[in-house]
Amino acid sequence: MGKITLKSVRKAFGEVDVIPGIDLGIEDGEFVVFVGPSGCGKSTLLRLIAGLEDVTSGTITIDGKDMTELPPAQRGLAMVFQSYALYPHMSVRKNIAFPLKMAGVSPEEQERKVQAAAKVLNLGDYLDRRPGQLSGGQRQRVAIGRAIVREPKAFLFDEPLSNLDAALRVSMRQEISELHQNLKTTMIYVTHDQVEAMTMADKIVVLNAGRIEQVGSPMELYRSPANLFVAGFIGSPKMNLIEGAEAARHGAATIGIRPEHIDIGRGDWHGVVGLSEHLGSDTFLKVMADGLGTLTVRADGEVSIKAGDRIRMSPQPDKIHRFDKDGKALA
């Protein structure tokens, strides 16, 4: 079980309200991603749930029990840190067994659970090594192993992949997703990378300046961002935002259209291609559009448009997002 509920959780460091007040429910077995730019309070929020920081006011309940005042050890959660935080003086085996040792589990039981975790994570050959002798990905797995053996109510991940190189990040991302499918335990995952959020989450919580901007499934956020912040944050490359006359024509202060929702060839929009990036599967064009500013447009991978070409474009009408002058989405 791992149902976590935050009720008007507020956190202030001295005079500064880092988190002015958050209400959030996380269902048992859900994979929730907290995403937002650095300094948005997502890590602080995770540390509040973990118990590594005190809340200034509000309550945190886990499975209906008020955990607000309990120390981290008694909350039944496990955490994987950005730096992995492995114990450098212990072997991999002892690292993974440490939470069991703290819980007073018998040595035989410890060994059994360590072996089981090692099997899941492919660490069998490394059990007697020290963390210093492992690669980044292996260290990451040890950190996860240490979390698994506790059989926690929920896993907390604090930007766990940010120290890995790009290729490893993709494969670890998949491993964590598979782990979630197998264990079906609640996971809360903090990242600033919207790709990680989109690919892994059941539910994304977009945070900005300590406030929740929007909560929803990845596709909900993609299809109907609640405001300009979410619109700009979710999706890659970023959504094009257009103000002025064109927006007014749609009855909005700002309109947004994603690069992949602009068709090339015909239409009322025209402009000069400034830069053409061929990725193979796609081509991204930077277009200086007349009266609209610079637009990013996704074209087919094989397209032969070059910088300096003049093209015509049209937005797919049903994919235009409209926002009022406060940045809120219009129905």
Binding site: F13, G51, L52, E53, D54, P71
Partner: peptide
Amino acid sequence: MATQSSRL
């Protein structure tokens, strides 16, 4: 950056 109990 700490909790009440750790300050105690």
